[in-house]
Write a protein that binds this DNA or RNA. Sequence first.
DNA 1: GCTAGCATGTAAACGGTTACATGATTAG
DNA 2: CTAATCATGTAACCGTTTACATGCTAGC
Lengths: 175, 175
Amino acid sequence: MLELSILGFLYETPLHGYELRKRITALTGHVRPVGESTLYPAIKRLEKAGLLVRETQPGPAAAPRQVLTLTSAGREELRRRLADAEGPEVTDENRWFALLAFLRHLDDPTAQATVLRRRLAFLEEPASFFYDGDRPVRAEEPDDPFRHGVLTIARATTQAELTWLRTTLAELESS
Amino acid sequence: MLELSILGFLYETPLHGYELRKRITALTGHVRPVGESTLYPAIKRLEKAGLLVRETQPGPAAAPRQVLTLTSAGREELRRRLADAEGPEVTDENRWFALLAFLRHLDDPTAQATVLRRRLAFLEEPASFFYDGDRPVRAEEPDDPFRHGVLTIARATTQAELTWLRTTLAELESS
DNA sequence: GCTAGCATGTAAACGGTTACATGATTAG
DNA sequence: CTAATCATGTAACCGTTTACATGCTAGC
């Protein structure tokens, strides 16, 4: 999720670490703050993997800025990660939304639709959460308002996302 | 999240690892599957910390079952983790739902309400996601249907949860 | 005879978290 | 002068994931 965000933001424009961190924080920081100690090692990893290069610039403030630019391998990698997303990237809401935030970079509508359909399949399959085997989840602990809440909220959110997915898929297909 | 689920399920009744894993899978496995290699080390940690004890039972199948029982320290620890939940436990949806699933074990309605209020505060604060500084998020990348989707879905889900939180808090307070 | 399910683990690598560490500039 | 912001990192620890490893029983 972190690496995807780094690739996603740098795909648009080169940035230095501090600015990158601010943008990631604006995107997903409310859920989980990104520490410097998470970001900088991640940048190093991506650099070592040849996905980005850094160029030192004397910044306005004291410390020199390390401006990060994606290499063509890095740009390919982002597109690959977006197109090949599956498993946790599709089932984990946090990762999924981080992915959605950059899905426009996969500029082929057909490829975009394929990704959305994976999420749709996940949300439609009755194996999720509300089911115990093949029947809707029993009201075990029938007086537990909290478990009841989990189900209520999950149903509402699933419904909202299904609606959006179906209309968006229809739009993508008609283009 | 894993440790909380272990404590939560064992709080209800002693279980062996395999059965425990099935229950955790039924609860959160659709989002992120629990591997044996995650569960068994986690059990060992909790055992070493004195939160649970194991008792070997010859099972119906070949391998002897290790039946796990919470110690009183373990029961206290669950209640403590539920009552003291903050940070990621409250802001990360996955963790939050895992916590909600066991919140009934904190049998004091006042303590339960306190926890719910933390989530309410998080969802009500305008620092989340839809805002850029103090104004609603600008429609940057105005033609990006995916970012638009993220916002649409996030608003709908937040709304559903706020409604539930408010009614449930009212109920808790009137008891 | 084979596959699926029951039941339990270990080892290595990887990534994230917490805490520590530094230093300059700008606004109050 | 002091706090906040800019800007970059390291070290140790901890937990998760991936891959590996074993062996029995029940049903087809």
